[in-house]
C-alpha cells in the first residue's frame, strides 16, 4: 500500500495544481475552496500538491495541514474505487445502522475510514445523508440504498467492481 502511494505521488502533475490556484492568488481566505478543488482533481490531497498550494499561496504547510485535518471532507490518503458511506444519523442509528456497519466491516475486513487492500472499497461514515425516511441508509458512490437489513449488505457490495 505504501509503495502504491509513493508511486501515485510521483505521478502528481503540479501544473494542474497551479491552474487551480491561479484565480485565487493572494486570497488566503479561499484555501478551503482551493483544497476542495485539488481534492476533486486527485481524489485526495497528495502531499506534493499540498506543498505546491502552500508555496503558491504563501501559507505555511503546517497551517494548511491544520485546515485539512480539521475538516472531515479532506482525505490525505488515496481512496478506493467505490466509496461506501454509512449514514450515522439519529434515525439510521435507532433503525439499526450499527448492525449494518458491522456487517460491512466483517465482509470487507476494514474499519471505518479504511480502504481495502485491492482499492475496491473505502468505508466511511457520514453524519447524515438526510434520507431519514429510508433509514438505515448507506450510499455507495452516488447510489443510496435504503431500508437496509444486515442480510442485504452482501448482495449490494457484490454489485460494485
Amino acid at each position: 500500500m505504501s509503495n502504491e502511494v509513493a508511486a501515485l505521488n510521483e505521478d502528481i502533475d503540479l501544473s494542474q495544481v497551479d491552474s487551480i490556484v491561479e484565480p485565487y492568488l493572494g486570497k488566503k481566505e479561499m484555501v478551503i475552496p482551493i483544497l476542495q478543488k485539488v481534492q476533486e482533481h486527485f481524489g485526495y490531497l497528495p502531499r506534493p500538491a499540498m506543498e505546491q498550494v502552500a508555496l503558491r499561496m504563501h501559507i505555511p504547510l503546517s497551517r494548511l495541514y491544520g485546515v485539512t485535518t480539521f475538516y472531515a471532507q479532506f482525505k490525505l490518503k488515496p481512496r478506493g474505487r467505490n466509496i461506501i458511506r454509512v449514514c450515522k444519523g439519529t434515525a439510521c442509528h435507532i433503525q439499526g445502522s450499527p448492525k449494518i456497519s458491522e456487517r460491512i466491516e466483517d465482509i470487507l475486513d476494514v474499519e471505518s475510514g479504511e480502504t481495502t487492500d485491492d482499492l475496491r472499497f473505502t468505508l466511511e461514515e457520514v453524519a447524515c445523508i438526510g434520507c431519514c425516511a429510508l433509514a438505515p441508509v448507506i450510499m455507495v458512490n452516488d447510489d443510496p440504498h435504503g431500508r437496509l437489513t444486515p442480510d442485504k449488505v452482501k448482495d449490494i457490495l457484490e454489485s460494485y467492481e
Binding site: 481566505e29 478551503i32 476542495q36 475538516y71 472531515a72 479532506f74 453524519a127
Partner: peptide, 18 residues
C-alpha cells in the same frame, strides 16, 4: 468541508475566512 462545529456562529465565521 464537513465539520459539525461550523454550525456555531463564530466557528462558521472562521471557516469562511479559510
Amino acid at each position: 468541508a464537513g465539520a459539525f462545529v461550523c454550525g456555531e456562529e463564530t466557528a462558521l465565521l472562521a471557516s469562511i475566512e479559510g
